[in-house]
Nucleic acid binder design. Structure first.
Lengths: 215, 215
DNA sequence: GACCGTCCTATACGTGTGTATTGTCAGCTG
DNA sequence: CAGCTGACAATACACACGTATAGGACGGTC
């Protein structure tokens, strides 16, 4: 479970950092419930007691991981979105950032009931909503649903990809976190997002039929 | 955690069925690891030993739930997709079926490593792939990615919705399993699937740039 | 009535896991 | 050197949970 992106990148990190990295990997892979402090300690090459010495409890260790990921995300966003308003490139980049190893942790944390991850989810919904309202200005007819609903759905769907990476990799016969799988996911998302899957006529008709639910 | 759609619908079900329904609810809500046999027994109103008497072990209980859901899905598909080839209505219906309470169990089972759920995932990918190849015949330029990649991505994204129902409901300030939330999800999906989010030009340009990864 | 199988409960056992305690060693400071 | 502090290990404790066992209540069959 490699270390987190750049950084020292060596195993001569401080023990606390090694424990945190190991915890990030275990929580992302096994989930909070199935991950064990002993397993994390073993991956970090330290004793069980040291984990407790540095973080106090399993829940506190989770919070430390949450805050670390949140801080890393903040820095990434500041240096990435600093140049100009959200455009298509920003949207595509945001979708693809779902592949970032740290994001895999956040996706799993959402399932495991992390409040920090929930806040990050809400933030992503807000950003997507802003993007949508700008894009809606170029549309003719009004959307079938408000921007917030669509933003929440798009966000949830994006998170679904790293969440189901195991099954996605199996269906593609390639690890989606590897270079080839990453390429196919990127191109697949580009195609899906750039081409409508159903016709606008059918959607409009479906909307009309939806307000009369019981024929 | 209501009983499964139609059926007897009352609490005068056989104890075995009540245990299974309770297990479906607990597994879907807490996941396999955090769900406890004692909690399931309590929800079903039976003793701990009876669960073991009927199902043998926790893993066997999970398999029984898997097979039950698989059989229910098979019947649903037979009576639903019997009439004609896949069309837009079938696609929309399949997307919306992600809201079905039983599907919530499958979504969670995918995260928890159920082999039965994995098979259902692969089946969904296959059906989506068939749908896509038919639809690709009406497209001008070739897609940016093969149908299987796109099918797997669409499937994973659809599963993401029930998986993140908690956060989705919070973002929408409405329970997405309730009538109002269900409506907003349906309309939101219709709009997303019927309108491209990014321009085809940008997507094509992005594809071209993707083959030269390091500028 | 006697026997038997099924549904069901109560209780006990073993183990994995989070948590707590204690102890050791290195480094620093007076 | 004495004394203290923090990093770290080893061990023990408490508890929840899956599993196993023993037994009772009820209905059917001979």
């Amino acid at each position: 479970m490699a270390t987190t992106s750049q950084g020292p990148a060596f195993e001569d990190l401080t023990a606390r950092a090694r424990i945190r990295d190991a915890a990030l990997g275990h929580f992302a892979e096994y989930g909070f419930a199935r991950a064990t402090i002993r397993g994390i300690a073993q991956s970090a090459g330290v004793s069980l007691g040291l984990v407790r010495h540095h973080f106090g409890s399993k829940e506190a260790l989770r919070q430390a991981c949450d805050e670390y990921v949140m801080e890393a995300t903040r820095q990434y966003n500041q240096q990435s979105l600093a140049g100009g308003p959200p455009d298509e490139a920003a949207f595509a980049a945001a979708s693809r950032s779902a592949m970032h190893p740290l994001f895999r942790y956040v996706a799993r944390a959402l399932i495991d009931g992390s409040v920090t991850a929930a806040n990050m989810f809400d933030e992503m919904v807000g950003m997507t909503e802003q993007w949508l309202v700008r894009r809606d200005q170029d549309r003719g007819e009004p959307p079938l649903a408000d921007a917030r609903s669509r933003a929440a759905l798009i966000t949830a769907m994006a998170v679904g990809i790293p969440l189901l990476h195991e099954h996605l990799s199996r269906a593609l016969a390639t690890d989606i976190f590897g270079p080839e799988g990453d390429r196919r996911v990127a191109l697949g998302l580009l195609d899906i997002y750039s081409h409508s899957l159903i016709s606008a006529e059918y959607a409009a008709a479906s909307q009309a039929a939806f307000d009369k639910p019981h024929p």
